[in-house]
Amino acid sequence: MIEIHLLMLLITVIIGLIFSYLAIIEKDSLKAIGFSAVHAIAYAIAFYILMAPDIVLAYVAVAVGIYSALLIFVVSKTERYEVV
């Protein structure tokens, strides 16, 4: 049974890693915020598998809701596209 949990943990953490990488290299800030929200969902599942429900409740609300919204507010006050 524990092997299935470890496998699920591996998959979710890798999804989180991939989306955090995509969020870093993305030039369109709004898309990057979306990637970061997906990363947060993957990590919330990982925390749930690691048996930390208290963290999950705070993490989902902050990282998916409040943090993304805060960044969207910031983007709306500046430029959407990063120009290098």
């Binding site: 429900p53 208290d54 999950v56 409740l57 705070a58 609300a61 902050v62 809701g65 409040i66 919204a69």
Partner: peptide
């Protein structure tokens, strides 16, 4: 599981 901070940050999503 849960508590003041978790509930409060979930509450803040509603006005958002």
């Amino acid at each position: 599981p849960g508590g003041g901070f978790q509930g409060g940050s979930a509450l803040a999503v509603a006005p958002l």
